[in-house]
Amino acid sequence: MRDEALHDRIARLARGGARRTERAPRTERAECILPPGREVRTAHGTFYLAERSLQDAIRGEKNAPLRFPKKPWNIAGGKGDLREVERPLFFDLETTGFASCPLFLAGTIDLAEGIVRQRFARDYAEEKAVVAAAAEEIAGAGTLVSFNGKSYDLPFLRSRAARHRLPFGSPPPHVDLLHQCRRAWRGRFPDFRLQTLEKAVGRADRTGDVPSAEIPELYHDFVRRGRDPRMAAVFKHNLEDVLTLVRLFFLLVEGEKKGGESSGLQGGR
């Protein structure tokens, strides 16, 4: 029982002894196991940025090719009306639990620029810079597009910003695809989890993926040891999640163009 050994250690401290004399050396950061990227220095500290073009990111995917629908990209508004989505920024966070725990990876796709960005905190101390940069990018976007981001990702980011005493302005209009999918495809799926919907947009290939439930512990291990080869898989997991957002979004836009019918939908029941 590790905790009993810890109790014994405290007992020795209580008797005035047992201060640790040497500290286990920390392994160096192993960027080689992360996707290619660079360190970014900001006023709020450093973080690791893996940035590439959207074309590059989807190249070699086994999935159906990404087809951009013609503009305007309209999507259902709150009252059954249509609203045009301009300069969408897709985003998805990887966190270590609920809002009192840190986040460590913020993935975004800016369609106008055609850029995929993954901002990564190599350790807990870098979280602040990740939060600040992600918040800044979101504030500058035309429209924010997320999956369940209204209840999870955005409040999480806001809470972490508050935690770091960072300003967090009011975000741009926010399209939450969870609500959109529910509305468009009510009754067609057993549930509306992202992994379920992803099959419907022809992205079934998740080989080598890390189960979401293991991600928090994996990250804590990564920081503890300074390396964990599985972290690359977490980057991939996050990238695929954001890419799925783009595909879902396009599917919904196509559906609206066809009068609310969603063509291209696979695997529905």
Binding site: R2, R9, L13, R19, R20, T96, D123, Y124, A125
Partner: peptide, 24 residues
């Protein structure tokens, strides 16, 4: 000394000069 003990038992991780909670 207590923070070091917590670190040795995997409860916290030291990053630079600070100990961060390292469990879910």
């Amino acid at each position: 000394p207590i923070a070091e003990a917590l670190e040795d038992f995997g409860k916290v991780t030291r990053v630079e000069d600070r100990w961060f909670w390292a469990l879910t």
